[in-house]
């Protein structure tokens, strides 16, 4: 707050963590206010959290600073405090390790540069290796699936999931039934159904015209789709195509 020269700060916590809210409310002082928010995805996204806390709307394609806001992740705030007050550089981070594939799932302080295989072998315990069928670097909605365990942790590695077949979905898409759930659930008020149709006929210009570039790739559309259409996947393809065309 000092660096920005602002007077008001908010700390948003989802209301399924009442203890955290209680502790933080006791600790908060000065211009800092604790805001309990309804638990819903993807509220952690920058524009969505600004709207939830301040009701300010960040213009499409704009930055939070345009409405006078700066959003800082809990971990970023912590690391800045460590650097400024303790003089400690960022060499470790809190990380969630979870999934059926590991016995000792939980939150750990992990240093940067640790191979995923080391974390897996350390926490696996007695669980056989064949249980783990998918490894995700990140969360279940937006994380990246890993082909093997050679990558190492970095400052952005917030979680590692070792999932069994039961824990992730592997379904064949069926024909779109036009139910509109993707449109009603999009946090950016976009039309994923129409983007996917445009992508299937390779009409990326049409997708761009309908605002595909505003997508934040939260995956809500693909999650909710009863026909299991790969909607966000199609959107990613469209965004990539449009970006590469823009560069030419």
């Amino acid at each position: 707050m000092k660096a920005l020269g602002v007077e008001k700060g908010y700390i948003a916590i989802e209301n399924n963590k009442p203890e955290a809210i209680k502790i933080m409310k006791e600790a908060a002082n000065g211009g800092v206010e604790i805001v309990p928010l309804k638990t819903k995805y993807p509220q952690g996204a920058e524009k969505q959290i600004i709207y939830a806390v301040t009701k300010r709307v960040v213009p499409a394609g704009g930055l939070p600073a345009q409405v006078g806001c700066v959003v800082s992740n809990t971990h970023t705030a912590y690391s800045v405090a460590q650097a400024v007050f303790e003089g400690e550089t960022l060499f470790k981070r809190a990380m969630t390790v979870s999934g059926d594939g590991v016995e000792r799932a939980g939150n750990y302080w992990v240093r940067g540069g640790i191979p995923f295989s080391y974390i897996y072998e350390t926490l696996r315990g007695e669980v056989p290796e064949c249980i783990t069928n998918k490894v995700i670097n990140g969360g279940p909605m937006m994380g990246f699936a890993q082909a093997d365990l050679r990558p190492v942790t970095a400052k952005g590695t917030s979680s590692l999931l070792f999932l069994s077949h039961k824990q992730f979905s592997e379904v064949e898409p069926t024909q779109c039934i036009n139910c509109g759930r993707c449109i009603n659930h999009c946090p950016m008020h976009l039309v994923p159904r129409d983007y996917e149709r445009a992508v299937l006929r390779k009409d990326y210009a049409a997708a761009e015209k309908l605002g595909v570039m505003n997508c934040l790739e939260c995956g809500s559309c693909s999650f909710i789709c009863p026909a299991k259409r790969p909607l966000v996947q199609a959107i990613r393809l469209a965004k990539k195509e449009i970006r590469s065309r823009g560069k030419k």
Partner: peptide
């Protein structure tokens, strides 16, 4: 491991 684009749950 199975590799696919996110989301991994539906």
């Amino acid at each position: 491991y199975v590799v696919s684009s996110s989301p991994h749950i539906t």
